[in-house]
Nucleic acid binder design. Sequence first.
DNA 1: AGGCAGGTGGCCA
DNA 2: TGGCCACCTGCC
Length: 308
Amino acid sequence: MATDPWSPLSGLPQLTPAVLAEILDRGQAFRWNQDPATGDFAGVWARHAVRVRLDAGGRPEWAPAGTATGPADLAAYLATGTDFAAATDALPWRSDTHLARCVAAFPGLRLLRQPFGETLLAFLCSATKQIVQIKQMLELLAARLGRPLYPGGPHALPDWTTLAAAPEAELRRCLLGFRARHIAGTARYLAARPGWLEETEALPYPAAHARLLELPGVGAKVADCVLLFGAGRLEAFPVDTWILQALTRHYGLEGWSPAQVAHFGRTHFGPHAGLAQQYLFAWERGQRRPLSAAPAGSAPPRSPRGRR
DNA sequence: AGGCAGGTGGCCA
DNA sequence: TGGCCACCTGCC
């Protein structure tokens, strides 16, 4: 018999299934899929493919899935070098009861450290789309334009050079809609500037953010997502509709613009504001999930008029 | 059966 | 700066 391919995933704390799902498959990354029967996750990034699961005690385990992926590769992706427990403790949860509630609800939540260029591609796809649809776009991009990780295996995402060479019509076949123009434009911009992405990734947060805004289809929100999920910049505070709603309801920011909310977030939550954002995001989405899970006949949840 | 969806860019006061 | 709208199209 083959030896057990599963190994302990050191560097991660014990997790609940819900928190593991939140980390891998709820909007930071879009290339993980959960096996409905076993609950195991299968994911792809760069030229890596792995499976991840929890043992009976909630301890994460992993197994390679046909690629030469080692523990160090996975550790880098999961940012095990960052102490998220300490970063969480440094958030102002002691004086912020809503944040404290969010932190308590998702113990062990963390940020991924995905490949920079792939994260940019993913969030260029994300404009006014739900997670399921973003995942479909990326699967199509990989299937049509990416190389297989091994013969018969899953495909990697296409790199930016490949995307620059692809006709926009080919991109439109990947369900991208108007995002195809943004991706094509960004691909051309990058093709004309070798090293631009790597330089941008290495820049301090404010400079990196400003540079990303040069790309077509990249505004403040997408730039912050790329830096938070693809560059480990915990200062980044993406403001999407969920965060806008969260801050409106729980922090009394009625009528604030996204830019104002972003400024509030960075100053109120501090240098790890992006981690706070992830807790708030997870909470806020959890509040609306009952829409499809609600028992038949029950009234849909009235939008809670949260008074701070 | 349609409205809506992890935004962005352009245009107008 | 602030508000408004077009942009694509497949899900719930």
